[in-house]
Amino acid sequence: MIEGVAALGNFVLFLFAALVYAIAPPYKPRLLIRQLRTIGAESFFLVALIGLFTGMVLGLQGYNTLRRFGSEGALGTVVALVLVRELGPVLAALMVTARAGSAMAAELGAMQATEQIDALTVMAINPVQYLVSPRVLAGVISLPLLTCMFDVIGIWGGYIIGVGLMGAPSGPFFNGIAQNLGSHDIAIGLYKALVFGMVVMWVCCYKGYHAARMATGVSRATTDAVVLSSVLILAWDYFMTAILL
């Protein structure tokens, strides 16, 4: 029980330290840019691909469901609201967890196992500031941007299938979006993406940083990181939706 509380405390303090060191000098833009590339730019194609297919399946399912009520004209609104408010941030975060988060946990775990993190400490370089802060910051910056791209590509995917293939009317598709998708909806999606970006990097860095120094330590850290990130994303998503709705 006491150990559980202590571990939770360490977990929270880890994030706190990462955020404090992110705004404390010395500033190393080079490290941030490298992580923006790894977490953001290199995740783009995966996120775009998942966004396209998610939008396509929404177009297909949405069209078939709406046709029963004779409301094919609302297809654009349905696809856009579902993507922007819900699926965009959640799926983009899950994809970043799978691609960048797991790699991050494994990399930091290996650095821990081979004493590279101790080496930084002994050189009087704060390892949290050097390794963790740029990653958390890059997650917070990257994920909202990736989510925006996911949403746009998803809406086009829904358009291609719903309008292009199934024959829903083209005009109402975009008209509906323009009339019903408000800045409030977009803001909710971006808040979620921002928080998820922080959560994913926090969990994955924490698990890697505290990997056990054994042969199985790195694999265990990677698994734990992906599982815990995914669970936290979906749980947080519920609570954020309930609060922001």
Binding site: T114, E115, Q116, D118, A119, V122, M123, A124, I125
Partner: peptide, 30 residues
């Protein structure tokens, strides 16, 4: 810590950096 240098058991070299960058690292950073 400025006073001492440490040689770790497995070397603890940063595998993402070349020999030059590894050795230069403490000077570049500090």
């Amino acid at each position: 810590r400025e006073k001492f240098g440490m040689l770790f058991q497995a070397g603890a070299l940063f595998d993402s950096m070349s020999v030059f960058d590894n050795v230069a690292f403490p000077l570049v950073e500090k």
